[in-house]
Design a protein around this nucleic acid. Structure first.
Lengths: 142, 142
DNA sequence: CCTATTCATTTGTACATACAAACATTGGGA
DNA sequence: TCCCAATGTTTGTATGTACAAATGAATAGG
């Protein structure tokens, strides 16, 4: 069945979560080649491009909660892709050489993802959708 | 920070998941009065309005996977809001009297949710957003 | 200088969801 | 008639995310 045919298709709750699940799935597929989830992949990219980045900054960039960021970093640390150094109350995240080597592959995943959804949704349309979603997200104070 | 200011704000992955998390949160708030998550609430509503409904139908309506539907039903069963009867390979879900009594409250939650997001996003705008999200979801074959 | 507050991060726990595999039932073809 | 494939559902397990509380560090007020 198509999403539009559901009795709740006109409800923002179902609309947004259905979209996000599908997008998550596509993204997961695109990041599979590097063995990371999209979130982990993006986090690692930021850590490579901004070595020493702090969790608080990642919270802002990835729009996730602090605890989630900690968990993401933990996993990348297990995989020896980043290391954490803690000094006082601040923590810095650095990519390991092994992590750094992945940059091209990571970028390719991101590009692949973008190309795939743009191809399916249309270039103009997907850009428009993203920007209106973004606007709405900012308007929504929960 | 605003979602639009993130370096990945133009990426559908972040856009859709950020929106969905915010919407989920608002919806969760709106359903708190009945002590159910939005998904549970909607599922119960369908079960009340279509007694004997089968999991496969709920899968379509709620756009969730079969296993998730089973889990949702399980929880409602624990709370004595629905009962399951299995005959052969098909299962029917019926609301209990206790479940049925909740219908007005459930509808109120749904309405409250709709009013709240419409008030924040604008009536026209939110409707337009929902419909374009829905269209895009259908276009996206993962 | 000490204490109270605030800040950055982590930890314990919980939840919604999914995938893969298992299970049971049904229907069709050899 | 019997087996095999398809169907509907459930189970085991894993993942991403969040909240609330805990920790540890910096800062400000008396």
């Amino acid at each position: 069945m198509k999403a539009c045919d559901s009795r709740y298709s006109q409800c923002l709750y179902f609309a947004s979560s259905a979209l996000s699940r599908k997008v998550e799935k596509l993204a997961t597929e695109c990041w599979a080649p590097v063995g990371l989830s999209p979130s982990h992949g993006y986090l690692l990219m930021i850590a490579i491009e901004e070595p020493g980045v702090q969790p608080s900054f990642l919270v802002e960039q990835l729009q996730l909660t602090p605890s989630t960021i900690t968990r993401l970093i933990e996993k990348l640390e297990e995989k020896k892709l980043v290391v954490r150094t803690t000094e006082g109350k601040i923590t810095n995240v650095y990519p390991t050489p092994k992590g750094k080597d992945m940059l091209p592959a990571l970028k390719a995943c991101g590009q692949d993802f973008h190309e795939r959804y743009a191809a399916q949704l249309g270039d103009r349309e997907s850009t428009a959708l993203v920007s209106s979603i973004c606007q709405m997200t900012d308007k929504l104070k929960v």
